[in-house]
Nucleic acid binder design. Sequence first.
DNA 1: GAGTTTGGGTGACATTGTCACTGAAGATCT
DNA 2: AGATCTTCAGTGACAATGTCACCCAAACTC
Lengths: 221, 221
Amino acid sequence: MTITDWTERFQGTSRLPRSVRDRLVSAARIVRFSKGSQVFGPDNVPDSLFFLYEGRIRVSQSSESGREIVLYRVEAGESCVLTTACMLAEEAYNAEGVAETDVTAIVLPKPAFDRLAAEEDAFRNFVFAAYSRRLIDLLRVVDDVAFGRIDVRLAERLLSLAGDKAEILATHQQLASELGTAREVVSRVLHDFQKRDLVAQSRGQISLIDKPALRALAQSD
Amino acid sequence: MTITDWTERFQGTSRLPRSVRDRLVSAARIVRFSKGSQVFGPDNVPDSLFFLYEGRIRVSQSSESGREIVLYRVEAGESCVLTTACMLAEEAYNAEGVAETDVTAIVLPKPAFDRLAAEEDAFRNFVFAAYSRRLIDLLRVVDDVAFGRIDVRLAERLLSLAGDKAEILATHQQLASELGTAREVVSRVLHDFQKRDLVAQSRGQISLIDKPALRALAQSD
DNA sequence: GAGTTTGGGTGACATTGTCACTGAAGATCT
DNA sequence: AGATCTTCAGTGACAATGTCACCCAAACTC
């Protein structure tokens, strides 16, 4: 699949003058990652701005003992500010981005980024807004982890992962990584949910039987 | 005390042309907060960029059940990007900034901010770098809270709060707020540290007796 | 000196996380 | 189709951390 004009895709670029967009198209390159591959990480730090054209990237942190917590996801149409932060602050961080689907991204080198940020209000606001959203995302993660009860958080996450659907394809370990907890803890809480007829389970799959009750639980606190 | 030229104070403004700085000085206003007062919060959201000229602001989050966690501190010379994030993203957040000392801040209205960000590379980089540092700060908080042991975290925080000194003036409750835990947990861990001759305590005060041992504990993990 | 407020200690319990182990579902191979 | 292997889930025992209620003492105020 060829991408004719990726600048249509992003709020920060779609309204720029044609000449500016043409310049961007020639300055940027397109990269692809297959599902499951690492897009960035502590030892794999890109030095440019990433726009996600297509797909989804899961950004998470891992502990030294092997646990993991999902921080947020980058969806198509968003920029990946963690790469930008790394580029600008020149500090290491231990977050990792993994392609959750096949991914197509636009990579803008720093000089082009700098020029665009200087010259285009819309673009600069787009980047600032992206940063702001991530700060707020991380504030939510802190709030969640520091103060939240694990059953409430799991209910919330099940509903979020399901979306419109009633079924989630995920292992207990994957759910544990969403929340930064242990697999056994997820097994116990899901078992309790099953006893209360909130969910049904089979290996690698969870059906949400009583979404309203899960919602009520998710909102308690 | 009068501030003749606050633009000297900040990396993002100190190297700007004289004419630009003069414009900033006339566009910005100076605000003061006394120790203990709220600088910003969920119901007190400024709509401008804050530079901290003097003093220190503690930024924290609170839970509905009354617990609190310190996210980071803003020191003199830094900008306060949470206010900027709120301004740009137009989303509520439940973090609060409280003046830990008497505080003098420079408030730059959004139009002046926008113009400066457009026209001055140094300023824009200063703001991006500020954002990046906060993202990384919050990543550290998540890592700490999600994966860290409470005794290790307390040892770290005691050393950090003490700096060069051997004594900390803080209640157990204040230390609990630093880490997002319960006062009783801090009392127990400090009791254990005291038994191991790492610290000595009296009411509202903790002396670090064996800094090397505390450092060793802080780095274990 | 008495009374009040604030800070700290503690016991009992609940929740969450760790570790080791076991069992079963599902995949693969013959 | 059966055997074997891998992966996922369940569980018990225990540790770490957080909650709640209560008590006591240090410090302050009158």
